[in-house]
Design a protein around this nucleic acid. Structure first.
Lengths: 153, 153
DNA sequence: GGAGAGTTCTTCGAATTTCAAGGATCTCCG
DNA sequence: CGGAGATCCTTGAAATTCGAAGAACTCTCC
């Protein structure tokens, strides 16, 4: 990446950015810790489980990797682990035999249901309880905008 | 953690939360990738380097760990790595010999200066360019509120 | 029908993080 | 003083993640 001349962050940008990064790091660490401690699930595991729960027909590794912005190999590993715990199963697609779809099992659904309350409590305690309701629409708008930008080009 | 009855997220909360987690994961991954690719620095490394730069008298491992919400052993490892690259040095505190303070070196400062433009460009591209200026005060307020809450009790 | 290019997933070694245990030092109180 | 308990950092082993390379497969075009 070549940078001709830098446009540094001004004071207002810096205030927003700095508080976001630092508290974001803490936040993700805390959410992860809570899920690990109580259910031996990563934050990523939980996200995957949720998506599988909402998609009975299954999801491919690539789709999941893309969804969470991780390397494909991380998904492979996570799904293998879930499979060995009986939370998900994999099978190759008949049409395109390169594709592998992961599907949730009944045990996976129970796990997902068990994780729900724990995770929601965690989210409230570490995040939602400290965000005034008036800020919610702004947050939603800003981050969905960022999300959209991430999935372009 | 015991949960009597769950207060699920309502639609507005969900919209804010979901967009935040998903794009947050992508965002941190992208910032990390950019710094790694160009300077072989982790996002965490860069944060540490910045703090050391602003604190010539040095910082203890514990302070750094607390600052970023990581395990102490992670900081030990990161600082060791930096030390082997000549970016920082460590020395025991005279008063309290349990404490180890990390201090930045001239090479560390150059690295920090080199990282600045790269990181700022990364932040702009992945974050700031997609946030309207009017949202900045809200972001700053919300996340510094979360940060404050994280460092209580 | 088959060569070549692109896609999708897995595997592997290296780097990183976690977790539990341990060593050194300090503080406090009898 | 002297020892119990707390604090701070490091270490080692296991789990996880990264990134590159490879295997299996599909698609396109001649």
């Amino acid at each position: 990446m070549v940078i001709d001349d830098v446009r540094w962050l001004d004071e207002q940008e810096m205030a927003a950015w700095h508080s976001f990064v630092v508290s974001g790091m803490h936040l993700f660490a805390a959410l992860d810790r809570d899920l690990r401690d109580s259910l031996d699930l990563t934050l990523l595991d939980h996200g995957i489980l949720l998506m599988l729960c909402n998609t009975p027909e299954g999801l491919t590794m690539g789709h999941l990797a893309q969804q969470f912005g991780t390397e494909a190999s991380v998904i492979t590993y996570r799904i293998q682990r879930m499979e060995s715990r009986g939370l998900a199963v994999r099978h190759r697609n008949r049409r395109d035999r390169r594709l592998v779809a992961a599907t949730i099992t009944p045990a996976g659904e129970s796990m997902c249901n068990a994780a729900g309350p724990v995770h929601v409590a965690s989210v409230r305690r570490h995040f939602m309880d400290h965000v005034p309701r008036s800020a919610l629409p702004v947050i939603a708008k800003v981050f969905s905008g960022i999300y959209t930008a991430q999935n372009e080009t």
